[in-house]
């Protein structure tokens, strides 16, 4: 039950994009088309789960025992960067179609603050191993959900008559605001 609450909390109630404002750049940048939005969501979820595992192990078995907590930020960011590079190479070797689908989005994930935010939340909230993994899956699911909904709305928005200055990012942000209002409805769930 505890795990289920962590999952739901990360996915909808405290959605990374709409409640914590993490990962806004890809949220605005890649939400033009449904297909690319779902690819980006999948790639991010994948990296998030791996990051959750690796950052948990790194923090609890290397940084804490040696008293190196102050190195948290540089070590997390380096681990994430190398992890993304590693995932890219593995996917390239294993599955060409998947690589082609995710290809461009993988390097972008390194600078996605949602990933680093996830690692920091895990060390801040003292999750155990299973909880960290579930938290990673939930956060990834929530990110994908927000991205796909936004892409769906934006495909419709293309046809709308938006004032010239508001086209692109501004109207996307306003739409995201309305979406965030809708997601607030989940707040009573926990």
């Amino acid at each position: 039950m505890e795990l289920f609450i962590i999952f739901i909390s990360a996915a909808v109630v405290n959605n990374f994009v709409l409640a914590y404002f993490l990962g806004i750049c890809p949220f605005i940048g890649v939400s033009n088309k449904l297909s690319s939005a779902s690819s980006m969501g999948m790639a991010t979820t994948f990296v998030m789960v791996l990051t959750a595992i690796v950052s948990y192990l790194l923090y609890n078995f290397i940084l804490v025992p040696f008293g190196l907590e102050f190195l948290q930020i540089p070590s997390f960011i380096l681990v994430i960067a190398s992890l993304v590079q590693f995932v890219e190479m593995v996917i390239k070797k294993i599955s060409q179609p998947l690589y082609r689908a995710l290809g461009i989005f993988l390097p972008l994930i390194t600078t996605n603050c949602a990933i680093l935010g996830l690692a920091l939340f895990i060390s801040m909230r003292d999750y155990n191993f299973i909880e960290s993994v579930i938290f990673g899956v939930g956060a990834g699911a929530g990110f994908t959900l927000a991205l796909v909904i936004m892409a769906g709305i934006r495909e419709e928005l293309e046809l709308a008559d938006v004032p010239k200055g508001f086209r692109g990012a501004p109207i996307t942000l306003i739409t995201a605001g309305i979406l965030a209002l809708a997601f607030m409805g989940f707040a009573g769930m926990i």
């Binding site: 709409l18 409640a19 404002f21 200055g165 990012a169 942000l173 605001g177 309305i178 965030a180």
Partner: peptide
């Protein structure tokens, strides 16, 4: 959070 998105969107729109 919703207010943040909407305010930023409006400011961005006006500045554009």
């Amino acid at each position: 959070p919703a207010g943040a998105f909407i305010t930023y969107g409006l400011l961005l729109g006006f500045s554009n």
